[in-house]
């Protein structure tokens, strides 16, 4: 009897570990294991298949000297920066407006949030049609009588990266709005009333009291949006196909092309590692501040 009880106790104690073990193992191997594998590959001269001939930093030198890589990383900075800033501004703006105890808030919230439910492939394809000069916005405006109207960003290699921003913002700003709306609902109404009694105007209350108290929401939104930006692949594939030329390429597209279709696995792995570096550069300060906050 006593033995059996001890066994069940032991089982109950180790149950969480047992249940978590498979997923822990899978995550370790399939995520962290393959990250290490990719890092190792980036130091080899692998072409079509992995080859374990180490060449040091050769692939990284090639990468830095590659024009297409330069264009795609530049695009990522422009696209990522604009995407995050515009999404935050629009998201916060809509959240504040929706927070004014308006009628039909539930319906409006759903409408704004809904683009998030579609994949970037659909968003990209729909915006490709809208932005195409001969069948989209430009054509309609011209038919309205504004003959000189031009909106040809999609086929202009200087401006095409802004098309990516437009489509991505359309898709993701509703999500940012939902995050901030949840945050706004959590703000103590007593505090706002107190400020009102002190004679503060609504804009000042938002600027000085409410938004500063939403700092954690800012952080989460920023981290999620920067992830979306760095791993954007499907949007480019559907909206521009990387073109005109390769002027709208992002690093993820570069990585895919070289690792899988051009038999340059080493170079592809090196670009993957660079992307990981980008993600870590954002993530580590975030984790650091989070963990430090917990200790206090």
């Amino acid at each position: 009897m006593a033995n059996q009880r001890r066994f069940t106790d032991m089982l109950a104690d180790s149950m969480p570990k047992l249940v978590l073990a498979p997923s822990f193992l899978i995550v370790m191997v399939c995520i962290y294991g393959y990250i290490l594998w990719t890092v190792a590959l980036s130091f080899t001269k692998s072409r079509m298949l992995p080859q374990w001939k180490f060449v040091g930093f050769d692939q990284y030198t090639k990468l830095v000297n590659n024009d297409r890589w330069a264009v795609s990383s530049e695009n990522l900075v422009v696209f990522g920066g604009l995407f995050i800033i515009i999404c935050l501004v629009i998201g916060i703006g809509m959240a504040i407006l929706l927070d004014q105890k308006i009628r039909q808030e539930g319906l409006l919230r759903t409408i704004y949030l809904y683009p998030m439910a579609i994949s970037f492939i659909v968003t990209g394809t729909a915006w490709k049609w809208l932005l195409n000069p001969s069948m989209g916005i430009e054509k309609i405006v011209r038919e309205w009588g504004f003959e000189d109207f031009t909106f040809d960003w999609l086929v202009n290699s200087e401006m095409v990266v802004f098309c990516l921003v437009i489509a991505a913002v359309w898709q993701s700003s509703g999500f940012v709005m939902a995050l901030f709306l949840a945050g706004l609902r959590g703000v103590d109404s007593e505090m706002i009333k107190a400020a009102q009694l002190d004679g503060a105007s609504m804009p000042t209350i938002y600027r000085r009291i409410i938004l500063p108290s939403l700092k954690p929401v800012f952080f989460s939104a920023f981290v999620i949006l920067s992830h979306i930006a760095i791993k954007s692949f499907d949007l480019v594939t559907a909206l521009t196909g990387g073109g005109p030329g390769y002027s709208s390429d992002l690093p993820a597209n570069f990585m895919y092309a070289h690792a899988f279709t051009r038999s340059q696995m080493g170079l592809g792995a090196a670009s993957g590692v660079m992307m990981l570096g980008g993600v870590l550069a954002i993530l580590i300060p975030y984790l650091y501040s989070e963990l430090r906050g917990k200790k206090q």
Partner: peptide
Amino acid sequence: TTSSALGAISDVITNFYNS
């Protein structure tokens, strides 16, 4: 050409054509 040389050449060509 090998797919890597082809990739490199077509990158140059398409970039030239569109810039």
